[in-house]
Design a protein around this nucleic acid. Structure first.
Lengths: 337, 337
DNA sequence: GTGAAAGCGCTAACAT
DNA sequence: ATGTTAGCGCTTTCAC
């Protein structure tokens, strides 16, 4: 809790050299002799030197700072965030994270990142930028999602088809001939996922019926509650329900259990995103994994390239998803459709 | 995506004045005449001026930057984070958020905040600093949790007793004479909560039996699974279960439902934290709310005071919790203990 | 009411 | 192999 900061100058004075030597030495530049580098390192340690980014930021052309804009209340965004931080750090980049939420609009968040000199910004899900014209951004954007936040930028997109294809195969193999899809909230992502499901199911001669639900626990709960009411017993229910995401699936499972039905005995349920709850023993949701590590890797890759001045055309990276089978899906009850 | 930044100098040149005037004008200093302030504002807008914190940070003694260290994978931390951001922003402070996670240890996170000149740091839950000697921090810390991260710092603490007292009253009123407590992970927080429950229950002549569980879905699920197995039917089960937090409670509910039991018909279940899942219709958990808005308010208050040089003794703020009753608790089945 | 000048801590170009 | 110098964009005296 010392009031005055230890600077390069303090180290230089202590070692008896110049600030520029200290600066280079601390960054491990080989222009400085090994022994000198060591002496500097030791002295910096002793004085408790903590670099000041303000000075560094100001001077250098590429301060190696990336921005990240996401909605941290969504677990998947948190997963991306974690991976992105680790990867960027390993490459010597710092990441400034801004979580967009009700009390902290995207406009503010974006401004702050630019004020701190983020050289390029990774945006998880274009909807995070709702209310901001992406055009106002003065830096390159790398979007993770189904569509670019702004033309000319880079995009890392999940390929839903692969994982959903595996899911449909899995369900067909278990004898399910018809599935109900609990659809997500209106939007590109939801549409893309539904389209993929319909396409893949059609190819395999499986029927899909779509019901409006949403992305959270209660959307799934309510939608399933309605289905159960309308069905009047297990015989009127579909044998399998494919949900927009894991939260929605969780709601659906709870509704089934509350109705005295068994999962997967009476109804099989699948989710999407392979989140923590999916992996839990309590639910054991069969779910589609989007390989967040790979997505994060590509996003960081592009963000760094852009921050280093790569202005070449807008890149597109497609990452295949894959199915993770757990206990929430099982054989279709014979005799039911 | 312009390559070169618009600076104060650019605005000054355009308006035909000096950078110092522009600087003062943009910050609304009344030393500058109103018409001049307006001209500067307009020109800044026209040029798309975006302040550069690097310069500002470097020059000014109190750059009005707070740091926030939390575990963003926990919903409650996210809630605090959101409130803190909004409150700090309203008072003209920026907040740099660092989410500690596996790939991004507390040491790194703390270092980064200091490098960016955070004047004081709010730490949600002292366990967030695991692996870091808090003594190394060169700035004041404000801890939110049950104990200080470092002696001499400020603490904002949840008063468990008030909410848990209400909970015990509520359960007693419903006819419950004995409750089982699903305890959280070993640690101060868990201990404090258990102690509060035992104290409050003792005062009202209610019996408490403690079972080791944890803080997540599966801890609750497993613990409840064991209880159900051991009980062999509803008659051997407690009439009410008080869980460490909402996640744990959720696991407990799912275990009960899977066993064909009803909540609250057979067993009442309560949580802690009043999270989104507690408020969901699917679960409707009776839960203890910690008034995160108030906690956030006090934390921001102290952090700002410290950043402005308030060195006076270490403050302690206690925030009362309160019960939120929902549908997961109901009358005890008559005849059962 | 406004401008000139100094300097925050750092890095990069240019000496030596 | 190391030191000197200039300057990043901003705020803050201090002088007018």
């Amino acid at each position: 809790m010392r009031s005055t900061r230890v600077t390069l100058r303090d180290i230089a004075l202590a070692v008896g050299t110049s600030t520029s030597t200290v600066s280079l030495a601390l960054r491990g530049n080989t222009r400085i002799s090994a022994p000198m580098r060591e002496r500097v390192r030791v002295e910096a340690e002793r004085l408790g030197y903590q670099g000041d980014l303000a000075g560094s930021l100001l001077r250098t052309a590429n301060p190696r700072v990336l921005g990240l804009l996401c909605r941290l209340d969504q677990e998947l965004h948190f997963t991306y965030h974690e991976r992105i931080l680790a990867l960027a750090w390993a490459r010597g980049y710092r990441v400034l994270v801004e979580g967009v939420s009700e009390g902290h609009p995207a406009q503010q968040a974006m401004g702050l990142l630019e004020q701190f000199r983020a050289q390029s910004i990774i945006v998880i899900d274009p909807r995070t930028l709702e209310g901001v014209s992406a055009e106002t951004a003065r830096v390159p954007l790398v979007t993770v999602g189904q569509e670019r936040a702004r033309a000319g930028d880079d995009l890392v997109v999940s390929d839903n088809a692969s994982g959903i294809g595996e899911l449909v195969d899995h369900l067909a193999g278990l004898g399910h001939r018809r599935v109900v899809h609990l659809e997500g909230p209106a939007g590109v992502s939801s549409r893309a996922r539904r389209q993929a499901l319909c396409d893949q199911a059609a190819e395999r001669g499986m029927g899909v019926e779509t019901v409006q639900a949403g992305s959270d626990l209660d959307s799934g709960f309510r939608a399933m509650e309605s289905l159960v009411e309308a069905a009047d017993g297990a015989w009127g229910l579909p044998t399998a329900v494919v949900c927009y995401n894991d939260q929605c699936a969780q709601g659906a499972v709870i509704a089934l259990l509350r109705a005295g039905l068994s999962v997967p005995g009476d109804v099989s349920v699948s989710g999407f995103d392979n989140s923590r709850v999916a992996a839990s023993r309590a639910l054991g949701l069969t779910s589609v994994d989007r390989r967040p590590e790979d997505i994060a890797r590509h996003a960081v890759e592009r963000a760094i390239a852009r921050s280093e001045g790569d202005g070449g055309g807008s890149h597109l990276q497609r990452v295949a998803s894959r199915l993770v089978v757990r206990t929430s899906t099982g054989p279709a009850r014979p005799g039911r459709t």
